[in-house]
Nucleic acid binder design. Structure first.
Length: 676
RNA sequence: GGCGGCAUAGCUCAGUUGGUUAGAGCACUGGAAUCAUAAUCCAGGUGUCCGGGGUUCGAGUCCCUGUGCCGCUACCA
């Protein structure tokens, strides 16, 4: 029997958990693990929070807390959300713990010693007031691409471009507010190209991987791998274990996947068997399975295997990486920043967490992005869980209670109808087995529903409410057969709804923990007890309430009519301002620049003279929208050629990240008027 | 503009390597039943499989092309 290590992508500890996370990486893994346990497989389910990186330290500084305090807060919040959904890890660690530091440093050291890491001198901003290097996200300035203010060093929120941070115009340190200087610094790079052949060879054996995953990897490999920096100049992270790297830490994406191993080490220690983790990670027959969202595919199939290949120890490589697609919400992308999400901690205040498990399982984004609709949620809970499954249990149990005081015995002989039904049930249960094995959760649930439908049909055909008047034995047989169906469901549905199924079994008087092998056992007679409905319906007003909440949250999030105050740029002299030549210009013609999304080619009258320029306005202004407008234009900026056209002016426009708005004069004023 | 993905019933989605008459659930209509949470069961589908072309004995599936949407990427003085 082979061993399994199942992991889910480490959730980042700077925010709460939403249903998209759950649908993509955590629920499918939990279901798979629970299935393996039903089959008595040797499996450990490992996870933890990803606790390093600049976003966490920025959040900490904003709130005046230590990074550790932020991490602790979200670690707790995320763990509680998992608990509310009965997602149970064998170990849920965090990457800011000691064993993780030790192991991550070891990974780095061995890669370094084995010649896979090289160092390079790069230029980076340095804050002299704080005497430290500034990571990209700690620097703000004018975006060199779109000219928007408040662009972070790694990316501009306004235009979404990635930025080489030292190209930022008028940079400001977010730490001290001073202007940073550019200094040289040494960073260490992982030589990914060196792994190319080994990776290709290894990936060639993974013919059984999901198609979407394979396609993704192939395009990556074809484009060619490049060296990647794996160190950073910040003080929150795992210190780089080199004397010359004082004050530098490992980049968060380097240390995060190592958390899978360090969390297992922590687990082994908690078991009182500190060496136990080796039985899993160092045994080449162990099946290591990473459940992730599709955005994580390159890390888990290219980078992470490379780290492992460069080690002295033979850690096991991923056996499978069943990545899921995305979950949308009410037709729109889930978005944390727009607060368009269903947060798990909110959800479990209103509904049983296993309702969410059910709907996310039956609607899992396995091959395609899927949509979560509240109306659909209600529908599935009511018509499938309540009407089909819940009602089957209730009608059978009530009937038994009424006529046999809840005692269910196995008949000596079964009619052909009952035998046929049970045979069909058996076939369907085998099908669910196959579904679970191949990560087809939605099909598994549908098949289980078919088992319940079979039960309802059988019950109807047997008409026990008529038979009870003439033939009690036949009714006993009916109830027995239906209980068999429910017993099968109580096992095969356990991965999806562990707690509800345990309630079902409790009612049936089955004490043992569910195991797949019990499908062929005979626990009769059974004494039903404490008969009750286990599922409740979701009412219309509950759904309306949630829809309203969703809209309100999204609106509340938009509410601030202003952008948070940013530090002003350094003072300038009046003369500096006077250097700018800004005038009112009238747009004469405008047309889209071919082969671009954002660019407009514009001619403008600046007061008896025509100029030509390029403006990045096309996302907000169509040509006819802008023609004839009298805009504010900076005219003495050094002209630059864009797309073969010499751009001789810059239309001034404001950008809040969503809307781009050109500046217009308040009154009708003559073209060419100077501004000052 | 480049690369990749997607497009199937009113809705949410399945459709394995090309192979009978393209499916499921929900919704809808009619009927049966009254044990059960008004829950169940039976019956009911004229869908340009996004449009157009091609390969093939045969295309939802493969190829070309057009359109629309999504992701990454480029252009923003």
């Amino acid at each position: 029997m082979s061993k399994y290590i199942v992991t889910s992508a480490l959730p980042y500890a700077n925010g709460k958990l939403h249903i998209g996370h759950v649908a993509g990486a955590y629920l499918p893994a939990d279901i798979f693990v629970r299935y393996l346990r039903l089959k008595r497989e040797d499996v450990i389910y490992i996870c933890g929070t990803d606790e390093h990186g600049a976003p966490i330290s920025i959040k900490a500084e904003k709130e005046g807390l230590t990074p550790q305090a932020i991490v602790d807060r979200y670690h707790k919040s995320i763990k509680e959300s998992f608990d509310g959904l009965n997602i149970e890890f064998d170990n849920f660690s965090g990457t800011s713990r000691k064993p993780h530091y030790d192991l991550s440093q070891q990974f780095f050291t061995e890669l370094h010693e084995n010649g896979y890491i090289t160092s390079k001198i790069t230029k980076q901003f340095y804050d002299e007031a704080e005497s430290r290097f500034l990571p990209d996200r700690y620097v703000e300035g004018i975006c060199p691409h779109c000219g928007a203010e408040g662009a972070r060093g790694d990316q501009c929120d306004a235009c979404g471009k990635l930025i080489d941070s030292i190209t930022l115009i008028k940079p400001i340190s977010k730490v001290s507010g001073s202007t940073p200087v550019i200094k040289e610094t040494k960073q260490w790079y992982l030589n990914l190209p060196k792994f190319t052949d080994q990776l290709k060879e290894w990936l060639d054996t993974k013919t059984y991987w999901k198609e979407n995953v394979r396609n993704f990897i192939l395009s990556w490999l074809n484009e060619g791998l490049i060296e990647r920096a794996i160190t950073r100049d910040i003080n929150w992270g795992v210190p780089v274990p080199l004397d010359e790297a004082d004050g530098k830490v490992l980049y968060v994406w380097f240390d995060a996947p190592i958390g899978y191993i360090s969390s297992t080490i922590e687990w082994a220690q908690n078991q009182g068997k500190p060496e136990l983790w080796k039985d899993y990670w160092l045994d080449q027959s162990t099946k290591l399975i990473h459940f992730i969202g599709k955005d994580n595919i390159p890390f888990h199939t290219i980078m992470w295997p490379s780290f492992v290949m460069g080690q002295n120890e033979s850690y096991v490589l991923p056996h499978d990486v069943p990545a899921n697609e995305y979950l949308n919400l009410e037709g729109d992308k889930i978005s944390t920043s727009r607060n368009w999400a269903i947060w798990v901690d909110e959800f479990i205040k209103y509904f049983d967490g296993e309702y969410l498990r059910y709907v996310l399982a039956v609607n899992a984004p396995e091959k395609q992005d899927n949509d979560f609709l509240w109306k659909d949620f209600q529908n599935k809970i009511n018509t499938e869980l309540n009407n089909v499954l819940g009602n089957l249990a209730n009608r059978v149990f009530s009937f038994s209670k009424k006529h046999f005081d809840g005692l269910v015995e196995k008949p000596k002989q079964l009619s052909e109808a009952s035998q046929t039904t049970l045979k069909q049930v058996n076939e369907l249960s085998l099908e669910t087995d196959h579904c679970y094995q191949s990560y087809q959760v939605r099909k598994a649930v549908k098949t289980i529903l078919d088992i319940a439908r079979l039960g309802n049909r059988y019950f109807d055909e047997r008409e026990p409410w008529k038979a009870i008047k003439v033939d009690k034995t036949s009714v006993q047989e009916t109830i027995y057969t239906c209980c068999e169906i429910l017993r099968v469901i109580s096992v095969v549905m356990t991965p999806i709804l562990p707690n509800f199924m345990s309630q079902l079994r409790e009612i049936m008087g089955i004490k043992q923990k569910p195991l797949w092998e019990e499908l062929t056992s005979n626990p009769y007679p059974l004494q039903l007890e404490n008969i009750r409905r286990i599922f409740q319906k979701v009412e219309d007003n509950q759904i309306e309430e949630q829809l309203k909440l969703l809209q309100e949250n999204a609106l509340a999030n938009k509410e601030p009519e202003r952008i948070n105050f940013k530090e002003l740029k350094p003072e300038i002299e009046f003369d500096d301002f006077m250097k700018l030549d800004i005038r009112i210009a009238k747009i004469l013609t405008a047309e889209k620049v071919k082969k671009t999304d954002k660019l407009l080619k514009i001619t403008a009258d600046i007061g008896g003279k025509e100029i030509e320029l390029i403006a990045g306005l096309a996302k907000s202004y169509s040509p006819e929208n802008i023609i004839d407008k009298k805009v504010v234009m900076l005219l003495n900026l050094k002209p630059r050629k864009i797309k073969g056209i010499l751009s001789q002016g810059m239309i001034l426009a404001a950008d809040d990240g969503e809307t781009l708005s050109v500046l217009l004069a308040d009154k009708d004023i003559k073209t060419g008027s100077e501004i000052g």
